[in-house]
Computed example of a mutant assay.
Amino acid sequence: MSAAETARSRTRGPSLRARIAALGAAAAVLATVAVTYTVQAAGGRAEPTAVDSAFGLDGGGGRLLFRSTRDGAGEGRVARLPVSGDGARPTGGPACRRFHAAAGTGLCLQRRTGIPPRSYAVVLDEDLKEKRRVPLDGIPNRARVSASGRMLSWTNFTSGDSYNQSSFSTRTGILDTRTGYLVKNIEGIQLTVDGRRYHAPDVNYWGVTFADDDNRFYATVSTKGKTYLVEGDMRTWSARAVRENAECPSLSPDGRRLAFKKKVPGGGRAPWRLHVLDLRTQRERPLAERRGVDDQVLWLDSARIAYALPGKSGRESDIWSVPADGTGEPRLRVRDASSPAVLR
């Protein structure tokens, strides 16, 4: 090639190969922008789809799943650890305000910003992928899955943000994942208090826990300034008050005991102390945790319960445990975490 030809070639601009490479890079940038816009337009609903199968609910027992708020994880993503609370802490699950799981079924309560903000109960499969989404009113507060994975329940605040406020109002729902039967607000259940059918406009329910038969359940009902532990029956759609001053019950793995929080004098902003009730003898025992616990506890096993308490920052929570027989002392399990669930 002559010097003149070489000069003309240089003035023609980039080669065909260079132009193709530039077009490819531009297309990749446009695709990235499009994906980002789609996620933002969806109100942040996109969740990781490539969840490690060992991270999900089908990888055997002996693991603790929980909502992790470490490293500014936004709403808090589902993470896992051994039940001991030690070891690596992978965070590969969906973002949830509240979370619970059992027997291959997960329940993730989400709150999405926007005008108006929206809440959802998201049913998860054994790989923590979404199976069903139920729109809800209010702010997510409690989530529970029955031991079989069949029955789900959740509670949202629809006014106020604390059980210690006189103006609070709740909506508690139940979903049968086997039949698809959904009750978005259980306030219409036939309630009996002191042996009589009870009606009142201020009735609120929260904190459902299911028995092994997936029919019987326990919950809290409040009315006229009092709270009651109620025993419910799905088949007859009825509930009866069995005890006063008992909130957020949690049934033990053997079905013989209920852990709950009970209001005590001098508790300040969190006036509750944890107790365990023997359902056969009806004797209750205070636990060694003396700090006010505003949570629905989880049974780690037949001897220990776990619960969340505010952390050092005062904003996020840590998971603690304490023996269920009233002995011992509280033990820190997981920092920057809440909503524990044990895969047995």
Rank of each mutant, 00 (worst) to 15 (best):
R80S: 03
L124Y: 04
A27N: 11
Q282Y: 07
S146K: 05
A246P: 04
T227S: 14
L300E: 13
E5M: 09
V342T: 12
K131A: 09
R315H: 12
A22L: 00
G328S: 11
L343E: 10
R8C: 08
Q165S: 15
P90R: 01
R333V: 09
T209M: 01
R144Q: 09
D336G: 10
V183H: 14
G59I: 00
G267F: 04
G267M: 05
Y218Q: 05
A103D: 05
G173Y: 09
L274F: 03
A3H: 04
R63V: 08
A308N: 04
A147L: 09
N164L: 10
V78S: 03
E126W: 01
N164G: 13
V293H: 05
T155E: 04
V193E: 13
V342W: 07
I20P: 06
G93V: 01
C108D: 12
K129D: 06
P265L: 06
K184W: 06
G43V: 05
A95G: 15
S148Q: 10
I189W: 01
L251A: 07
P340A: 07
R344F: 00
P140Y: 06
R333D: 11
E75S: 14
V276Y: 00
A239V: 09
G311Y: 05
H100E: 01
L277R: 01
L251P: 00
L182E: 13
R285H: 04
D125L: 07
V29W: 07
G72K: 12
G266L: 01
D52T: 09
R17C: 08
T105M: 04
A101R: 00
R285D: 06
A21M: 04
S15M: 02
D86G: 04
L175F: 10
A79D: 13
V208Q: 03
R344S: 00
T281D: 07
V78E: 03
T236H: 03
A25W: 09
E75Q: 14
G195I: 10
P140R: 07
Y205Q: 11
V342R: 05
E231G: 06
M234D: 11
R273C: 12
